[in-house]
């Protein structure tokens, strides 16, 4: 059990961050990642449109499950989207994404050199993310 991939997409649907978090995760080329991110963004719009009931918030997919992994997505009000894939039966993914959002707010958004909607290349964000992932994986594996 553990996390596999983390993606961050900006509100226009382009990829601003991706990270492979485990050896189990598939090998994806940078091109694949860009492709997946924009597919996901487009799909979210369709998913909302296909809703049989009117929606108040207009999140799209929140959890997606397949036979080999689960995906959890989180979209705060600002329109940025975070999604993470993990092994089956991994719990508390929503809480993990919320923690990721907190460090995103702290170390990316508060960084004066970061330009909005551009790919994230911030050392402190990466360091904190790594710490968060390790902490999470340890808790899951115990």
């Amino acid at each position: 059990m553990g996390l596999q991939y983390l993606f961050v997409i900006n509100k226009a649907g382009s990829l601003i961050f991706d990270r492979r978090l485990s050896e189990n995760a598939p090998q994806l080329s940078p091109n694949d990642c860009l492709h997946l991110a924009s597919t996901f963004h487009g799909m979210q719009l369709l998913v909302q449109q296909l809703s049989p009931e009117p929606s108040d918030h207009g999140f799209g997919i929140v959890t997606l499950e397949t036979e080999s992994y689960v995906l959890q997505a989180y979209r705060p009000e600002t329109g940025v989207q975070f999604f993470v894939t993990a092994d089956l039966k991994t719990e508390n993914l929503a809480a993990f994404l919320r923690d990721v959002y907190v460090i995103y707010a702290d170390y990316v958004m508060k960084n004066p050199f970061y330009e909005l909607d551009m790919p994230i290349k911030v050392d402190r964000w990466e360091a904190h993310l790594k710490r968060l992932v390790d902490k999470y994986n340890n808790r899951v594996n115990v």
């Binding site: 189990n24 598939p26 369709l46 929606s55 997919i61 959890t63 499950e65 036979e67 080999s68 992994y69």
Partner: peptide, 28 residues
């Protein structure tokens, strides 16, 4: 949407043979 979803989820799967989605949940 299903077509895109299927391609998407198979690509992200650690085992391509088992990457077909079974279900997803939205807020509604």
């Amino acid at each position: 949407m299903l077509f895109a979803l299927r391609n998407f989820s198979v690509k992200l799967s650690p085992d391509p043979a088992k990457g077909v989605p079974t279900f997803f949940v939205t807020d509604v």
